[in-house]
Amino acid sequence: MCSPRFFRVEYEINPWMDTGVPVDADLAVKQWERLREILIELGHTVHTLDPDPGLPDMVFAANGAFTVDGVAYGARFRFPQRGAEAAAHRAFYTTHGWPHTESAEINEGEGDFAYLPGVAGGLILAGYGFRTAPPAHAEAVEVLGRPIVPLHLTDPRFYHLDTALAALDDRTIAYYPGAFSAGSQRVLRRLFPDAVLADEADALDFGLNLVSDGRHVVLNSDAAALAARLAAAGFTPVPVELSELKKGGGSVKCCVAELRG
């Protein structure tokens, strides 16, 4: 994770960002700290990156890389405003002894990759359409050695896969069908007939931008209907308020890069 100490909306690179809407920086830090505390209370170890005053979106740490089996596939950001973040993430992984491959293709880390270790020996769901370029999927196969299912995002409000789909445990996902092309919807129905489906309202509240440890699901507190569906499916919802970070187009998952050793 990376503190939002320097978080602000000073450019617009997704439909949620509006430079005319002020950000309460102190509140953003308080909300982020509460998210970090929740993860620690649930028994997880949280590493932190030092924020850079020149990189206001570094708080969205999930976009810096995607890791499987202790190997990091590094990001190459589509927009130049975020490009320098990739080096900060690369330094973290190399310092901690993780093999890191610098991508030659446009991809935004866990923003567009989700991992299901219990499906097909380890299946990667990979989004494209707005940020990550399809050639990155082939590159990720070579780096990570796992099969990939490409999923076409067609609604610009859901510009990253992690705004429209989330892994809940090793085999189960939650997603909003309306974010995907008709073909991708058919693929998801066939692969995950027991998925938890979100409605448009909860998807727009960033309810699917969540982090799950297979039992506890930490998600945006605005997504009350999705929380109820998750509870009915046997998971334990853990709501957290992240109103300030939503102004940048992100929520829980965007703030957390999961380290799969």
Rank of each mutant, 00 (worst) to 15 (best):
A126H: 11
P135G: 03
G118M: 11
G127A: 08
V143C: 00
A140D: 03
A136D: 07
P147M: 08
A136N: 09
A104R: 15
G127Y: 01
E102I: 12
A136C: 12
T101V: 15
A120Y: 13
L144H: 06
G109S: 10
S103K: 02
D112S: 11
A133H: 11
G127V: 03
A133S: 14
G122Y: 05
G127P: 00
A114M: 07
L116Y: 03
A120S: 14
D112H: 11
T101K: 12
A133D: 12
P147H: 07
F130S: 04
A120W: 12
I124W: 06
P134G: 11
A120M: 13
V149I: 15
F113M: 09
V141Y: 02
E139M: 08
P99T: 08
G121K: 15
I124H: 06
G129E: 00
G121I: 12
E110N: 05
N107E: 08
A104S: 15
Y128A: 05
P150V: 10
T132S: 15
A114K: 07
H137Y: 07
A136Q: 03
A126Q: 11
Y115H: 07
G127I: 06
A140L: 04
E139T: 07
A120L: 14
G122M: 13
P150A: 10
G109W: 05
I124V: 15
G109L: 07
V141N: 01
A126Y: 00
G109E: 12
E105D: 14
L123D: 03
F130C: 00
P135Q: 07
A114P: 00
R131K: 14
Y115S: 02
P117S: 09
T132P: 00
E142Y: 06
S103Q: 06
Y128P: 05
P99E: 13
G111D: 09
F113I: 05
L125E: 01
R131C: 04
H100S: 11
P150C: 12
N107M: 08
P150F: 11
A138N: 13
E108R: 07
V143Q: 01
V143M: 04
I106Q: 07
N107A: 13
V149T: 06
P99V: 11
T101C: 11
Y128W: 13
E139S: 11
P135F: 03
G129M: 10
L125Y: 06
A133M: 05
G127N: 01
A104K: 13
N107G: 06
P134R: 13
L123E: 04
G121H: 14
H100R: 10
P150N: 14
E108H: 06
I106D: 02
I148F: 04
I124K: 02
A126G: 15
G109P: 02
L144G: 02
H137F: 12
H137R: 05
D112M: 13
Y128G: 00
I124F: 06
A136H: 03
G122V: 10
P147G: 02
I124N: 04
V143Y: 03
T101R: 15
G109I: 06
P147R: 04
P147D: 10
